[in-house]
Design a protein around this nucleic acid. Sequence first.
DNA 1: CTCTGGCACTCTTCGCACGCGAGTGCCAGA
DNA 2: TCTGGCACTCGCGTGCGAAGAGTGCCAGAG
Lengths: 338, 338
Amino acid sequence: MLSERRLQVLRAIVQDYVGTEEPVGSKALTERHNLGVSPATVRNDMAALEDEGFIAQPHTSAGRIPTDKGYRLFVDKLAGVKPMTAPERRAIQNFLEGAVDLDDVVARTVRLLAQLTRQVAVVQYPSLTRSTVRHVELLALAPARLMLVLITDTGRVEQRMVDCPAPFGEASLADLRARLNSRVAGRRFTDVPSLVEDLPDAFEAEDRGTVSTVLSTLLETLVEENEERLMIGGTANLTRFGHDFPLVIRPVLEALEEQVVLLKLLGEAKDPGVTVRIGHENAHEGLNSTSVVSVGYGSGGETVAKLGVVGPTRMDYPGTMGAVRAVARYVGQILAES
Amino acid sequence: MLSERRLQVLRAIVQDYVGTEEPVGSKALTERHNLGVSPATVRNDMAALEDEGFIAQPHTSAGRIPTDKGYRLFVDKLAGVKPMTAPERRAIQNFLEGAVDLDDVVARTVRLLAQLTRQVAVVQYPSLTRSTVRHVELLALAPARLMLVLITDTGRVEQRMVDCPAPFGEASLADLRARLNSRVAGRRFTDVPSLVEDLPDAFEAEDRGTVSTVLSTLLETLVEENEERLMIGGTANLTRFGHDFPLVIRPVLEALEEQVVLLKLLGEAKDPGVTVRIGHENAHEGLNSTSVVSVGYGSGGETVAKLGVVGPTRMDYPGTMGAVRAVARYVGQILAES
DNA sequence: CTCTGGCACTCTTCGCACGCGAGTGCCAGA
DNA sequence: TCTGGCACTCGCGTGCGAAGAGTGCCAGAG
């Protein structure tokens, strides 16, 4: 069990190290924070903290730096979330309100997050799973070649080519289009499969093959689009990582290009609030020297996607968490309005 | 005027420097390339080359490295384009043929280019200016609210909302859709404005406002979409840039996030063949220590967009140019097929 | 006139010894 | 349990000298 003062010492170490990027010693600590005790006492506390694995020293005779475990304790017990100031909040809101469409909202969010946190920002596009179908359109490009266009209530449009097993007449096409829309328009994606299941039965035998093909393409589109896209930005902030550059930054850049990795990373965050994954807590190896701060956002009560930032484990956690939370809140608001 | 041998010396310097990343001296040169002359002679040649500004020495008593001007001469006069080997070409083709849609083609192209050249790859989405309209679709979302969907022959789909000044009946909608398609389907974007100019005249007075609105939205879409999108990848290769890391890499990362900058960069390449911009030849300041190798690609004879790579000025120009050219060729081919 | 070998000179780099200073650990005493 | 003191450890910066690479120039040969 750690005494109250030892926790204060840990907090002071984290704060100083985040500020200076240099190992912090006992003397400097007592000078900068008025702990009311002498350096010698602090040294004893530091020895205890080191025994417990919360801090470590890079070399003998250097100061201490927090370990992942130390940051974890700091985030969980010692620091809150620093709220944004009123002017900051206004700036966020103004900036996001200028967006003209969904792509623009996401793009602006990424820029904003990157600027506010001075780190790499990752924003997932709003998820389709909770979405509803606004309209399905079918176009004949050739006698046996259709284009399927799916329009969602979040304003996204997805298209797919469909090669038909047999030529498909204009009348059949109009019929299919009408039936399809009357069944699925306004419905949730998850409900679509059962709603269209028996649709081929309503058609002549010669058209059934095509109808089935169209339907399976539609269902595929719905599923595939749950492999959600995302946008990243602020990679230039990676240069502020540290001195031991290339070795650290390379795997991070590689991880950032693997959308799958990032999606998994964001997906892991289960909490309703802000989630912080520190260093080795991240499953992906390349991100072992980074921390990920993420949170879900959405319009109304529902989470439709996640956003977050990736930065060095030595980051300003309270500030970053505050910024991430604030941006998520305003993005949700913007999405609800549109 | 430079003698033949001096050009050979320059070529040797470029090749060695690209290989070793270290300033190259006269002795090493005579050992590695059998120039048939002594180091002393080479020294004289190097002094001449330095006077002309083709090479420079970082410090007194170090070897020489090529200047931008030196690379320029090398690219223009001393080196050709290194063709891809047959297995490489097959690999490119196979990889690209696996693509399922336009997004996928672009995504695969980026990955491929980044891997082949081990540099940062930039691929522009196929441009709409040269494209033709495949189909225009109009959907009624509400009595006075339409959705306009534009489908191009390159497989791109763009949608816009249209708020009508007055309610618009189903019959009028079908009429407009039919007339619109009969006029513009298969036509070039650039021809569309004049083709639809008199379309409102064919409608009742009460519908004319809506028709005009739809048309102007369509024209806007055509114009706006010339602000083309692009995709980048292989940023992890930036780590191979050099030793003086953060200072060089940061502005490059920043430039890469400015899509406008990149589009301008690619747009500048006017040649039918591969274009190389070396160091300070790039207008954007952040890219002054990089070279950009780009080329247009397209189906048939026409260039619909550009692609290229960004790397250190010290790059393998012949190999990079070969890879860029080959990828462009196969992407064009894939686009033509689909 | 061009090429070559030789020579002196310039700098960078590396290794090494040294001293400084920060920081630690431990201990005895309050 | 806290404090002050003290000895000890190391990392880091500095200065110096040797080594090595590379250059420029010059005089002589072809």
